[in-house]
Amino acid sequence: MMQYQGLDNKFFIKLPEGVSINLVPAGIVVRSCAYLYDFFIRVIVFGLVAAILSFLGDAGQGLILIAYFIITWGYYIAFEAKSGTTPGKKRFNLKVVQDNGLPATLSNIIIRNLLRPADAFPFGYCLGIATMSFNKSYKRIGDWSAGTLVIYQENNVGTLLNSENTSQEEPPKIELAIDEQQAVIEFSERCKKLSPARQEELANILSEALNVKDESATNKLKSMANFYLGQKI
């Protein structure tokens, strides 16, 4: 089930389709942010509903209580059952899935959200945070019981063809192992997100081996990457 992870906290999960996909579980900070985001939405929605209903006298009071009940217990269940995310989770690119990576079912969602009182014990989700920090997949008690994970939803990672620098390609003078080749390729792919100064700083680590420095080191690495990718066949 587990493959070599390197530094990344990735889960490899085997699918019935005969291939494994990797999931990246979301940590405490990003999930707390998503919680706060949802919390403010709930407060605002409840405030609006209560303000409108308060004009209806006694019946309005009763409806406010019902609205409060639905917003406290139903908000997460309704949103997560619909798409696996809540507005807050969506904002931070998070998603609830089952342990095996499949979309969570209604039963999973109900269990994980009804167990919130245990995670919130004694206040401010203390127990939930403690439980999350003691396991690699950052599950709180509700997640353990429902068999769910909160993962990052990766959207539009990179473009497929390395279209830059098509002209430059050069067979490296040294033989590199596969891991090292992949590191070079990954560097060239990450370059799009890095400032030129940072690119050079990273490339300069190899300046002795490459015999060049700064911008030419970056370019050399990029052209090596192009060679490994097989820009021209």
Binding site: L15, E17, V19, I21, N22, L23, G84, V97, G101, L102, P103, E154, N155, N156, V157, G158, L160, Q182, I185, E186, E189, L229
Partner: peptide
């Protein structure tokens, strides 16, 4: 390359969801 694998991984996980 990792980027290609990540992209395909994303395809598979959207597909299964």
């Amino acid at each position: 390359s990792p980027a290609l694998i990540a992209k395909l991984n994303e395809f598979v996980s959207t597909g299964q969801s």
